[in-house]
């Protein structure tokens, strides 16, 4: 029961990953692409948490912490680059 619901949730996450990729390709500016990058990493964090549960290994969640930190810095770096004050 719980696993079936979780699989549906995983399918929806994959769908939203693909949809946010659409914005990456059809973007007007670099800012659009960065937003899509941000959302993709956020969805990936949820997916890592889900993989942690389905594989039953508690240690995998450490990766999500590092992932969140580095994606945040990536977005901030690009924002500072756009402002020409890196």
């Amino acid at each position: 029961m719980a696993n079936t619901i979780l699989q549906i949730a995983g399918g929806i996450m994959l769908l939203s990953l693909v949809l946010s990729l659409y914005r990456f390709f059809r973007a007007g500016s670099l800012v659009d692409r960065v937003i899509s990058f941000d959302i993709m990493t956020i969805i990936s964090i949820s997916m890592i948490a889900m993989i942690t549960y389905t594989s039953g290994r508690a240690i995998y969640i450490d990766v999500a912490l590092i992932y969140g930190l580095l994606s945040f810095l990536g977005v901030v770096i690009v924002a500072r680059y756009l402002e020409k004050s890196l």
Partner: peptide
Amino acid sequence: KTAPILDNA
């Protein structure tokens, strides 16, 4: 098979 880290799992 699973990751090469030996814990309770």
